[in-house]
Amino acid sequence: MGISEADLIALWTTLKLAVVSTLALLVLCTPLAWWLARTRSPYKVVVEALVALPLVLPPTVMGFYLLVLLGPQGAVGRFFETLGLGHLAFTFSGLVIGSMLFSLPFVVQPLQNAFSIAGGRLLEVAATLRASPFDRFVSLVLPLAQRGFLTASVLSFAHTLGEFGMILMIGGNIPGRTQVASIAIYNHVEAMDYSAAHGLSLILVASSFVLLMLVFTLNRRFKVVNLA
């Protein structure tokens, strides 16, 4: 059981991917979840269904479409090439886009839930207390939805750590550049190097466990409001 330098790089890539895509998702999904929680638009169901799609689609299907879209022949890939940035397949940016899409429902749904509870009457009260819409969001919605944000971050982070099929499809197997831990493990097993596979697997199990422990401890220590 040993950890090679390549394994360490794969772990680092995994960590980077999880952090970047989680942060990007939190920023992008906050307004989307807010809209979903408050709108009465008939298109709400369409958007909700689209957001939930990654839950049911096989990761290979999404990975396949992304590969087509982000590659040199795809619409998005070509657009990036004309910008002189190069297409996105087999790149770290491509992986971030892929894992964001993959974890989308895990961020939107807890946030939407938290917003729909934190909104309504309390926002009306705040309006009668002279708080502007933005003020209401910052002073009420954000603190009241902190449990939702915590849940969304952990789910997205953990989900990215465990991602496999989609990453394989869009090129997450270039050692040193896009290879992530789950794929490195798969390679070790294919090469019958069980000892290396054990090493990496153990690290993933332990780090996921510590992460979850940390979250539950934080949740217990601080007064996180339960509105339900």
């Binding site: 309390l122 009306e124 309006a127 009668t128 502007s132 009241l144």
Partner: peptide, 20 residues
């Protein structure tokens, strides 16, 4: 005039205090 710009006070049926 938006609610937060009206110089009024409103007491709701339930106290609706901010729980946090």
């Amino acid at each position: 005039l938006a609610v937060h710009q009206r110089p009024l006070g409103y007491v709701f049926q339930e106290a609706s205090l901010f729980p946090h």
